[in-house]
Design a protein around this nucleic acid. Sequence first.
DNA 1: TGGGGTTAT
DNA 2: ATAACCC
Length: 425
Amino acid sequence: IVHVDLDCFYAQVEMIRNPELRDKPLGVQQKYIVVTCNYEARKLGIKKMMSVKDAKEKCPQLILVNGEDLTPYREMSYKVTELLGEFCPLVERLGFDENFVDITEIVEKRLNQLQQSGCSRVCVSGHVYNHQAINLLDTTHVRLVIGSQIAEEFREAIYARLGLTGCAGVASNKLLSKLVSGTFKPNQQTILLPESCQDLIRSLDHIQKVPGIGYKTTKRLETLGVRNVCDLQAFPSAVLEKELGVSIAQRIQKLSYGEDDSPVTPSGPPQSFSDEDSFKKCSSEVEVKEKIEELLPNLLDRIYKDGRQPHTVRLTIRQFSSTNKWFNRESRQCPIPPHLIQKFGKETSSVLSPMVDILMKLFRKMIDVDQPFHLTLVSVCFSNLKDLPSSKKGSIGFYLKQVSPPSGSAKREVEGVSQGEGSAS
DNA sequence: TGGGGTTAT
DNA sequence: ATAACCC
């Protein structure tokens, strides 16, 4: 498995949009937070998720661009996933800036070519975790070395075609590939040989750094006295199962050993489209309606371009509360009436006002508008996306549904051409 | 802490 | 519908 992780993705996209920002310290701002920044800014002490106030104190020359509209990042993100999809169908997205690629089949093909040509000279591309020596008589090592060459080709293609740099990690599963990709940081790549697996996983100083063990599970583990990966490895399974449930207990304990049998699941098109806005205060029905009317046109446009029809709509809000400041969200969802669904394929304007009405009804299910309220976030989400009833030859659906044939060059580059595999065209 | 996403229960 | 996870 290869894990591809773009460097400070939003900042890179902004530097492509405006090349003058290239060699200057740059931060991407959402509300009063610098969500990410380029490496020029990091040299000067700027960190991800730093407040704008702290960032400007640290670095008055810092240039800030607003990154609240994710459109440019989302578009570039899918270009990266689609590019990787030219090499191999098994590409799974994680957020906007990471992808897993299962290259097992490509590696097998190259290994066979190598063995048939009697060639025993294979050279690793990039780093080997722990500087572990490679044994070319070990086919597992050879496979990972071939993986390193493919990862290099991925990164080169992403740079040549999209102008983006990033890291890659190659290992036997998703967990380990992700952990190893971060070991040499901007614009480098690393492979993990199985003999160094325990060193990598045990190098994590806190269990929350294990992908899959989040905030809540970490808190519960801490009450059990489990603080690091070694503690979790050694903890009695039976006790863990009673505390967290069999499913979570078995999964995270396997993770603590670096074991992860989850497959690379092709992400395909998105399962949902959402748009949200946060703010200091929103306390009247009229304001809520205005927020919804701000969010909807953008969303309807995205759905229109996607070509599928959503069958469910959801409204999410966050109410102000001084205690438990984060994560007090509530939502209400409902099916979209069939007569409205039909209109999604056409002009978005005819959907707008009936949809606002539906969303305001959902709002009133959550909030008694006769009582005072104080919202700090409104979000609208369309989900349960279904393909249009694709009909005959002339319809839009017919053309949209046609799978575009692989452009070919990248795929042949990676798989090599030998006995009559190349197509006539 | 923002503005997104996913899956499991 | 919520809760957990990911970025």
